[in-house]
Amino acid sequence: MHNLLNAATLFGIVGMAIKLAMPYLYAGLGELFDQAAGVFNLGTEGIMLVGAFSSFYVVYLTGNLGLGVLVAAGTGFLMAVLMALISITFKAPQGISGIGLTMFGTGLSSLLFKTILDGTVLSVPGFPDVPVPLLSKIPYIGDAFFNHNVMVYGAYLLVPVAALVLYKTTFGLKVRAVGQNPQAADTLGVNVNLIRYCCVCAGGILSGIAGATFTLANINMFQEKMTNGTGFIAVALVYFSGWKPQGVLAGALLFSFVNAFQLRMQVLGIEIPSDIAMMLPYLLTILTLVFVKSRDKPAALAVPYERSEN
């Protein structure tokens, strides 16, 4: 029974990990933009749930998947504006406003689900798998890497895009400046709060899409609290990443791999209490936070910008 080391099983785990990493990538890269500009957004979980419900409902009504993703991005944007307003304009402590946003988003998505749809479990046609021509024909590797839906491919494409934006554009330069030293950036004529608003909104859009991946690109239905803490893990991954897109990629893959691995251990009948197995990814996250030294933490992270007046 313990054939964990056969190729089909190993590549099966890898393939599943690649798919499971998708929401962590969208939400984690979104959070990366928040934090790079110095905003600690713990509302990701709430934004994801609102994105998940709204996209599901729209696809349920119209059957239009593209529109669903767009709506998730839109509602994510709106939630982000709320977050930005409270933590940038009103300078509220960001950890708590994020928790508030998560409470609000979780409650709202459940409330809408129960009021509009009576809490009925309905399924929608999700994004179909699109095998990459030729590459998907490679034994094992093809199935694991090149036979996913477009939202999965999109998540991985987003990594170089985010890196490009952050490191090769003037906008990215301004973002990092605002995150490291807002005073200096301000003196050089950068509008600190504008940059932060942009980043929080971009983060919200991506988090909303991360929510939509649950309803449209993986499980194809909506249930209350279905993201089950993904948003919090995504925030942790940003710390793990050392505030770099490729770090988010590595973290998301590692976390998903452990998750896929423990589930597969159970399938293979390896004796381990399921509750202990489910604990593994969380233990791992703490351990990585301990051992990965985060050198490039934005110096102004979670500090509202106060323009010195004289």
Partner: peptide, 19 residues
């Protein structure tokens, strides 16, 4: 869930009002 939503709103408004 209505009350959960309400509690979330209270938190958001209270922290925003700190200003």
């Amino acid at each position: 869930a209505f009350v959960d939503t309400l509690l979330g709103l209270v938190v958001l408004i209270v922290v925003a009002a700190k200003i």
